[in-house]
Structure formats: C-alpha cells, structure tokens
Design a protein around this nucleic acid. Structure first.
Lengths: 244, 244
DNA sequence: TACTGTTTTTTGGTAGGTCCAAAAGTGGGA
DNA sequence: TCCCACTTTTGGACCTACCAAAAAACAGTA
C-alpha cells in the first residue's frame, strides 16, 4: 500500500475506536483485499501517529471479529481474511451459554429451520448433490455398525450432514445460522447420542430423509424431519426428568 | 529442545488468550455475576503476574464480545454485563457486509423466519400482546399519514414491530436471529421505504397481519405475510434492474 | 549449480514504566 | 446544608526495551 495516505491520524478522544473504524472500513470497503496484509504494527503506529498499544488493541479487535488473521515473523502481520460462512461468530453461542436458553427452544428453532431448509434443498439442489447426501447418510449408518462408535466423531458427522443440507438451499444465510446454532447446541449438549436407541433411530431417520429428498418428495421428507424432532423432544424430556 | 514436547501443542499459546479464557469462564460460570466488576487492570496485572498491556487486551476483547462494560474513574473498571438478546452480535452483520450476500437471500430467509414466527406467535401469545400488536401497527399507519414522514424513524418502527412479533413466540432465539438479521439488513438497505407505494402497501399489510394474528387466524396471517414478501421481492427486483 | 545449515531481519508478544483524563469520593468553607 | 476545590482511583495513551517465532539472506560445502 506504500506511502499513499490510506489512513489519517487519529483524532483526540477515543483514539482506538477511531482507528479501528478506519481500518475496518478499509477492509469492508475492499481497499484491502482478502489475502493482503495490513502494515505492520510499527508502521501503523507511525501512520496513525499513535502508540503501539493502541494499534495492538485495534488489530486484536479485528482478529477477534474474524476479519484478520495474525502471523508473526518476517512477512507476518495482520492478513485480511475472507469472512466465510464457516466463521459462525460466537455471539449466538455466547448468548445461548450465558442466558441458559432452554434446550427446548433450541430444538424448536432448529425444527423450523430444518423444515425450510429441506424444502428449499429439494427445490434447488441438483441430482448429484442429493445423491451425495444419500451416500453420506449411508456412510453414517455404516459407521454406526461398529460395536463401539466414537460418539464425538458421530456428532461431527451429524453436524456435517446438517451443514451439507443447509448448503443445498443455495442460500448462505441458512448455512450461517445452522453453523452458529450448532456451535451453541453442542455447548449444551446433553450427550444425546449416548442413548443407543435414539442414535440408531436418528440415523435411520436421516437415511430416510435423504432418500425422500433425492426422490423429490417434499412432503415425505418433511414427515421424516418431524419424526426426528419428535424423537428428539421425547429424549430431551426424558433427560430433563431424569436430572431434575 | 527436548523431543519430549513433540506431541504436545506447546505452550506457545499467548498468555493473553489464556487469561481471557480464564476470565470468560469465570463470567460464564457465574463466579462473577452481572453488575459486579472485575478487579482493576492493575490488580489483574498483579494477580496474573503479567504486563498491563496483556490485561488491557483481554479486557477489551471481553468488551468487544459484549460481556463487560468499561467505566473509568474511581469505582470504574470492567462491569459484567448480562448478554441479553438485544446484543445481537455483529458477526452475522459482518458476514452479510463482507460477503455481499444477495438481498434476495436475505429476503428469502426472513420470509421463512417470519412464517414460523407468525404461527408460533398466534399459538403462544396472550390476548393482550396480540392486541398491543394491532395497536402498534395502527400507530404506525397513523404515523404514515404525515405528508413528510421521517424514513429513518419509519424503519425503526418497522423493526420494532418485527421484534415485538418475534418476542411473542416465547422463544428467545427467534428474537435474537431477527435482531441480528435486521442489523445486517439495514446495512444493505436499498432505502426501500423511499418508494411511496411500497411503504403504504407494506404498512397496510402489517395492519392486516396483526388483525389476523389477534383473531387467531394462522392461515390468513400467513397469507398476508406472503403478500408482503411478494411485494418486497418485486421492489427489490425493480431496484436491481434500475441500478444494474 | 544445488543443497544445507547458520545468521540476520522483520514482526508480533510481553514487560514495565510515565503521564493524562475522567469519575468518584473527601473535606473545608460559606 | 450545599457547593467548590482537592485527592484517589482507574482506564487510556504513549514509550522503551527485550523476547520469540518466522521468513529471508547468507555462507559453506558437495
């Protein structure tokens, strides 16, 4: 970026916020493209006519927001990241954690989300994607055949299925919300998959749903989805009664 | 270099992140309750045996996450905030801004969200709340009678209506997502309300929807909602053709 | 030339200090 | 009692120094 005055010195007052806004605007305004790097902390310090501490705070705030990635050493610095859908931001997760949102609410929301996603996925995704979904669910079922399946890995596969389905809507927001929600969900995971019956029925249900989606049968697919959430609600209710 | 460290992630981890996690855990674990304050930066510096810069970074990261609020002066410091649903986190907003998510996608998502919310609101909210919704929509219509309505204020009222409706579901997550989405939506606002016809039809539609909700008529309410989004999609399409 | 190991430079990370400004408390005088 | 100046607390900014990691530059050898 050289010596052209992309940034102006901070005004007196909340210097850090001012600088943060300038840099953030530069990133969002694509003055600095993803993959490029901001000047080093010491350069920024000179450009903004400020202390390095301020710059560090700013850069770290950007890092926290997921806008940049920091590398050290020669050619290190703050590299602008493309905020992709993977970065599901922890704000929802934090909200779920601190407010002790009831798991029923999460389930309810996920059900409504899933129904829409299923419908859209059937309407929009191409044959290949749908077939891949079926294959993935069958792989999951095979995985479950093991006498001692790794529950953590199982959860991971399940999450991936959900995300894959969300991607099939062609609408990034569904994927974003799904990811955000799952990071919050796993944080209050009641280790649902420990229940063997639930686990088997759920996977079977997944396979069924995937088949309906591949067959372009929205109403049947929605029925499977509902069945899944019915199962989930029952289990959650049991767990609750068991622990309280 | 001892080879015994080959498999451990090594403690190259930054002290600041470590400290941040400790404090965050203390807050989320309710060791420190909302309203209480963390020790002062200098005290923390002493407790953690570290430099003040590190502490400042940590505290500001927490502030950025919305977990604390910083006051200065005597009795100042980092006060723990209750992360309420209002704090809709900017991660979604950032995502929408940087990825140039198409406005159609936002509209599509909002429509699906609104349909669920409407259904749930009818099922769950009590008479009073529903009546208040009707009153609020009528107030909005009256506001529109002015020859020169303040568009910004109008948008604000509209947002409040949406949030009020989301609250009526009794599920905080809907409210959270609605808020997050709106902060992102307004950032790519095509100044839709500038179109006088759209504005009037929309408000009229709002009144109608509210009445259907108050009358416990889910299917009619959903019809109004659909009509609203149809209108919105048309306008967006027109704007798009006009600008590209 | 090509590879290899060392040294230098760049850059973030940490430590500790000084000073400033704002906010709350403190106390004296009208 | 009330108001104003003074003091204390605390975050905000700035600075200097040094450490550690990573890349680049370099030297040495085959």
């Amino acid at each position: 970026m050289g010596n052209n005055q992309l940034f102006t010195p901070a005004q007196t007052g909340r210097a850090s916020e001012d600088i943060a806004l300038q840099i953030e605007a530069a990133i969002l305004g694509e003055k600095i493209l993803p993959g490029e790097r901001l000047p080093s902390e010491r350069e920024l310090q000179a450009q903004f006519q400020t202390g390095r501490g301020v710059i560090r705070e700013v850069v770290h705030a950007l890092k926290q927001k997921g806008l940049v990635e920091i590398r050290k050493g020669g050619k290190g610095g703050a590299y602008v990241k493309k905020v992709d859908v993977v970065n599901a931001g922890e704000s929802l997760s934090l909200f779920l954690k601190q407010n002790r949102v009831d798991i029923d609410q999460i389930v309810e929301f996920r059900e409504s989300l899933d129904r829409t996603i299923t419908t859209l996925a059937i309407a929009r995704a191409d044959r290949d994607k749908k077939q891949q979904l079926v294959t993935a669910t069958e792989k999951l079922r095979d995985f479950l055949e093991q006498p001692e399946p790794d529950l953590e890995q199982l959860g991971e596969l399940d999450r991936n299925l959900n995300i894959r389905l969300a991607q099939m809507t062609g609408n990034q927001i569904f994927e974003w919300v799904m990811r955000a929600l799952q990071s919050g969900f796993s944080s209050k995971d009641y280790t649902l998959y420990e229940d063997r019956e639930f686990r088997e029925k759920t996977i079977e249900n997944w396979c069924e749903t995937a088949r309906h989606i591949a067959a372009n049968e929205p109403s049947k697919a929605l029925l499977s989805t509902s069945a899944h959430y019915l199962l989930l609600q029952q289990l959650v209710a049991r767990k609750k009664n068991g622990t309280t």
